[in-house]
Amino acid sequence: MGLRAILSEGLKPALDLVYPPRCPVCGDATGKQGALCLDCWSGLSIPRDPQCASCRSPLGTESIAVGARCAQCLVKNPKHSGIFAATFYNEVSRKLILSFKHGGKIGLSPLLGRMMAARLPDIEDGELPIVVPVPLHRWRLWSRGYNQAALLASELVRGGKGRLCVDALERTVATPSLGGLGKKARAKVLKGAIRVRQSRVQEIRDQKVFLVDDVLTSGATTDACVHALLKAGANSVRIACFARVIDDAVVKGSAQTLDMEEQLGATK
Rank of each mutant, 00 (worst) to 15 (best):
M1H: 11
L7A: 11
L7Q: 09
S8A: 13
G10V: 09
P13E: 14
P13D: 11
L15H: 01
L15M: 12
L17Q: 08
V18C: 10
P21S: 14
C23L: 08
P24H: 13
C26E: 07
G27C: 09
T30S: 06
G31S: 13
A35R: 12
L36Y: 09
L36M: 12
L38A: 15
C40N: 02
G43W: 00
S45G: 00
S45P: 00
P47V: 02
P50H: 09
A53Y: 12
C55N: 03
R56I: 07
R56N: 11
P58E: 11
L59F: 04
T61M: 06
A65W: 11
V66P: 03
G67M: 03
G67L: 05
A68V: 06
R69S: 10
A71S: 14
A71K: 09
L74F: 14
L74S: 10
L74I: 14
L74C: 14
K76Y: 09
K76V: 10
H80A: 07
G82A: 10
G82P: 06
G82Q: 08
G82H: 12
F84A: 08
A85F: 04
A85K: 02
A86F: 05
Y89L: 13
V92I: 15
V92L: 03
S93Y: 04
R94D: 15
K95I: 13
K95V: 15
I97F: 09
I97L: 15
L98F: 15
S99I: 03
H102P: 04
G103F: 10
G103T: 11
K105A: 06
G107Y: 12
G107L: 09
G107E: 14
S109W: 07
L111T: 07
L112R: 03
L112E: 07
R114P: 00
M115F: 14
M115H: 05
M116H: 06
A117R: 07
A118G: 08
R119H: 15
D122H: 09
D125Q: 15
V131K: 01
V131A: 00
P135K: 00
L136G: 02
L136E: 12
W139F: 15
L141A: 10
L141G: 03
S143E: 10
R144H: 13
G145W: 08
Y146C: 08
N147Y: 10
A149G: 06
L151C: 01
L152C: 01
K161F: 07
K161N: 02
R163C: 05
L164E: 05
L164M: 06
C165Y: 07
D167G: 00
D167T: 04
A168E: 02
R171V: 07
S177L: 12
G180I: 13
K184T: 13
A185D: 14
R186F: 01
V189F: 08
G192T: 11
A193Q: 05
V196R: 00
V196G: 02
Q198N: 12
R200D: 12
V201P: 01
Q202P: 02
E203V: 08
K208Q: 10
V209P: 02
F210S: 00
F210H: 10
L211A: 01
S218Q: 05
G219K: 03
T221E: 06
V226W: 01
A228G: 02
L229H: 02
L230G: 06
K231P: 00
N235F: 05
S236H: 13
S236A: 14
C241L: 08
A243C: 07
R244C: 01
V251L: 11
Q256H: 15
T257W: 03
L258V: 15
L258C: 06
